[in-house]
Amino acid sequence: MAEGQEDPETKANKDHKDGACFKTGPQRDLYRDTGLPNGTNPGEQCDEYPFASTLEGAGKASWDFSVKSVPAKDNRVAGGMLREYYVDDRMLAWDEGLDRPSETNDRFYMKID
């Protein structure tokens, strides 16, 4: 992937989240009448689950996702903690370009209660 270019999975996650949260972007029509929140209040951000950084993010057609308006500071702190977890515990991004990607990529899952 070229420097500064967003990978397709990340872009798809963002497009679906923005469609659901703000009724904007290329996926806005999918979420027009869904009853999902329309934007955020001042000092809040729209957050999605599963995390955008996962294979099961909002852009994956075979998975459901949810969005919620949350305090911006809490969202930033949680995002920083998640990034730190990925780095500290060596969680690697899925690399489709590897020979036999299903066998050669590191696999991990998280159970969140």
Rank of each mutant, 00 (worst) to 15 (best):
Q5W: 06
K14N: 10
D15W: 03
H16L: 01
K17T: 12
G19Y: 06
A20E: 10
K23H: 09
K23I: 08
T24F: 01
T24R: 13
G25L: 05
Q27L: 12
R28C: 00
R28D: 11
L36E: 05
N41F: 12
P42Y: 00
G43M: 03
E44D: 11
P50Q: 07
F51A: 11
S53P: 02
S53V: 01
L55C: 11
G57C: 04
W63H: 15
D64A: 11
F65M: 05
V67G: 08
K68G: 04
K68T: 10
V70K: 04
A72C: 01
K73G: 00
N75W: 03
N75H: 05
N75I: 10
A78F: 06
A78T: 13
L82C: 02
L82E: 11
L82G: 00
V87N: 10
V87D: 08
D89K: 13
D89W: 13
D89S: 05
R90D: 15
R90V: 04
W94I: 02
D95E: 14
D95M: 11
D95N: 15
P101W: 08
S102N: 11
E103N: 00
N105K: 10
D106R: 15
R107G: 02
F108S: 14
F108H: 11
F108E: 03
M110K: 12
K111P: 01
I112Y: 11
D113I: 05
D113F: 01
